[in-house]
Amino acid sequence: MRICVTAAGNSLDAPVEPRFGRCPYFIFVDSETMAFEAVPNMAMGARGGAGIQAAQLIASRGARVLITGNVGPNAFQALAAAGVRIVVGAYGTVREVVERYKRGELRETGAPTVGGHYGMGAGMGRGWRRRYPPPPPY
């Protein structure tokens, strides 16, 4: 089975990156052989919709499971539509989390874990002023 893990680096020993759409690498791991492929995330700096683009990549590469830190609502919806099972809150190295998943120690989630624009940095996400209203003008 093909498992995708979001990672900070391009090897099995890289730490899991918690930001799904904005991780530096997607590591696709064959759970039987532990053979892997590291795919750099082209959408890392995208202005919006990075989660959807990442979901598109994962679905088109045939991963059945995604292991990551947090998933926003749009990406969650897309991954669910593609039948990808999602594990959130993972930490450790890519190798460790895949092993743990194989032993049945990681549970899949049924809901997104963060709101939209997570991981975009203050001021970057559209509509950020709604969440951080400026002080009154006088």
């Binding site: 919006g48 990075a50 959807i52 679905a59 039948g83």
Partner: peptide, 23 residues
């Protein structure tokens, strides 16, 4: 369509298509 969309507003899997109007 999804490949074309610069704003990642469309998601296509093997049997589903989703549009995100807010993007």
């Amino acid at each position: 369509c999804s490949e074309f969309c610069e704003y990642n507003a469309i998601f296509v899997s093997s049997n589903k298509i989703l549009i995100f109007p807010e993007l």
